[in-house]
């Protein structure tokens, strides 16, 4: 009986050994030469595979980095890893890394339950994209937040949640990597990637409604009514299509407080005072 066991072990082991040798030889013979840098860079990357860089995943991005020359490398950026990761990769490659300003997603709508109260009942599937397709939404604002949180579901970093009191999503700027998933999914295009700003001070117009003032105010008390008061505070602020826009070049430190105070409806949000709890009113 025991010889049977031994012979079995012997036969199987020799098959395994032979197979191993063949595999080894084949893998040597047909080895695909790959830049060892790719593996190293991939190790540095956050491996979120979010696609925010525009590549098909972290491995793809690492490949692009490894194959890039100095000129093309400056065009590559991993928003999740940020400057830190890019600097490490640059060191590996022995080039200088392009440093980018830290950015964060901001919600350009202040249509909270209080500012833009529900006018109609919506009983369909709880999805912003569907609600926007079949009707104008509960508040009646054709450009406002629908408050169902498609953005929350799509965020891979847990940086978004619906505030229970206001009903609208809140960006956690410590977690937000500005990957842009929320920007793409929002049917009303309410998210904008903006520079984080010095000491997290940012100023922006939290409204995208292009209706005339009276009509916009009918649905939301915090709507931009294009009163032009903000343009008097800072010349760079532009008003187009009944909607004000503060370019990122406007210094939040210098003008933020004034702009927020000048806005009669509260459509301009300045984060300098309230820290990250920007949307709680």
């Amino acid at each position: 009986m025991s010889h049977l066991i031994f012979s079995n072990i012997l036969v199987l082991s020799s098959i395994a050994l032979a197979a191993a040798v063949i595999l080894y030889l084949v893998s040597k013979k047909f080895a695909v030469e790959e830049n060892p840098l790719i593996d190293e860079i991939e190790g540095i990357l956050p491996n979120a595979n979010c696609g925010a860089c525009g590549k098909a995943g972290c491995r793809d991005f690492a490949k692009s980095c490894a194959n890039a020359d100095e000129a093309t490398f400056s065009g590559l950026f991993c928003p999740v890893g940020g400057n830190k990761v890019m600097k490490k990769i640059a060191e590996l490659k022995g080039v200088s890394a392009a440093q980018k300003e830290d950015t964060v997603a901001v919600l350009r709508c202040n249509g909270t339950c209080k500012n833009a109260p529900d006018k109609v009942e919506y009983s369909g599937m709880k999805s912003c994209r569907l609600a926007a397709g079949v009707s104008v939404g509960r508040s009646g604002c054709p450009d406002g937040c629908l408050r169902f949180g498609d953005c929350v579901n799509v965020c891979r970093f847990g940086a978004l949640h619906i505030d229970k009191n206001t009903g609208i999503p809140v960006v956690d700027e410590t977690k937000c990597t500005s990957c842009g998933a929320c920007v793409n999914i929002c049917p009303r295009k309410l998210f904008e990637i903006r520079p984080k700003g010095k000491d997290n001070k940012r100023v922006y117009v939290a409204c995208r409604n292009t209706q005339k003032g009276a009509m916009a105010r009918k649905n939301c008390s915090a709507a931009c009514i294009a009163c032009m008061k903000c343009t008097k505070v800072c010349e760079q602020v532009s008003v187009e299509n009944n909607l004000s826009y503060i370019p990122t070049s406007v210094s939040a430190e210098q003008y933020g407080q004034q702009l927020a105070e000048a806005c009669p409806t509260g459509a301009i949000i300045y984060t300098g005072n309230k820290g990250i709890k920007e949307n709680e009113q």
């Binding site: 369909g124 599937m125 999805s127 994209r129 569907l130 397709g133 079949v134």
Partner: peptide, 13 residues
């Protein structure tokens, strides 16, 4: 299940 809603959503997308 609001199956139609899903199909509609797919079409919008």
């Amino acid at each position: 299940i609001p199956l139609l809603d899903f199909c509609k959503l797919a079409k919008y997308e």
